[in-house]
């Protein structure tokens, strides 16, 4: 089926890609899969596993790494996310006009609209649950935020004519980002360490109210990621479809 030029381009590309992936494979086979690289004394993971629950008060060790041990790193990641979303918004507005009128496409069916309206509150509630329990069970601010964004996406599909408010999205995003930095500054003011968990002994490990400032930071991240991703999807959709 493929014409000759496609095959002529495909074969050398296939050879190059197999070469690159094969070299990487030979390198990684030496590392070994499933072998114990964690328990040696000088592995950083050993320290996180040994002291993670007592030092941060979080049952989920991934949360303790993301929010506490590498919280500053997470602040940087959230900044990158913000910059990328801002870049999308700026570039969408700078696109040259193509002058074509796009068709609106078929309207969503009754089942899509009504079923979506039933499902959206449940999905949003689940997202909130996921980032509220980030320190206890799998999940956290990033996962809960993107689950909320999928609920928003479902809303955009079910009601294509609905008006969405840019102002509300950017307001909640900015407030969440500011509260993340504010929680970091509390640590700086109390103990001299940015993002320090100043009330870490608060609550009993494994209960909802525990982990000190970790749940608060994850709630801020969840709201920020949720509104960021919703704004991204909304900008990508534009007013066209």
């Amino acid at each position: 089926m493929m014409e000759r030029s496609t095959i002529q381009r495909s074969l050398p590309a296939l050879a190059i890609s197999i070469l690159i992936a094969g070299t990487l494979f030979l390198a990684f086979v030496e590392i070994g899969f499933g072998e114990n690289k964690v328990d040696s004394e000088d592995a950083v993971a050993n320290r996180y596993i040994a002291n993670g629950t007592t030092e941060t008060g979080s049952s989920n060790l991934v949360t303790s790494v993301v929010v506490n041990y590498r919280g500053f790193d997470t602040l940087g990641e959230v900044t990158v996310l913000f910059l990328a979303a801002t870049g999308v918004g700026a570039m969408i507005n700078l696109l040259p006009e193509d002058g074509k009128k796009r068709s609106k496409g078929p309207k969503p069916s009754l089942i899509m609209t009504q079923g979506g309206m039933l499902a959206i509150p449940v999905i949003a509630l689940f997202g909130t649950y996921v980032f509220l329990h980030g320190h206890l069970s799998p999940g956290g601010g990033f996962q809960g935020g993107v689950i909320i964004a999928t609920a928003f996406l479902l809303y955009l599909i079910a009601k294509p004519d609905a008006k969405t408010s840019h102002r509300t999205l950017s307001l909640s995003e900015s407030l969440a980002g500011l509260s993340f930095i504010g929680i970091g500054l509390i640590g700086l003011a109390v103990s001299g360490i940015f993002l320090d968990n100043v009330i870490e002994g608060f609550g009993v490990l494994g209960e909802l109210v525990s982990g000190g400032l970790l749940p608060l930071i994850y709630i801020a991240i969840g709201i920020k990621v949720g509104s960021e991703m919703s704004g991204l999807v909304e900008k990508m959709r534009g007013d066209a479809s």
Binding site: V38, A50, V62, S64, V65, L81, A84, A85, F142, V146
Partner: peptide, 25 residues
């Protein structure tokens, strides 16, 4: 402390943020 019972949490924490940023890029 769950020493000797769990896998390495550090790569998971890094990959978690990498996935979310991947969508934006």
């Amino acid at each position: 402390s769950p020493v000797g019972e769990v896998v390495d949490p550090l790569p998971q924490a890094l990959v978690l943020t990498a996935i979310v940023i991947g969508l934006a890029t």
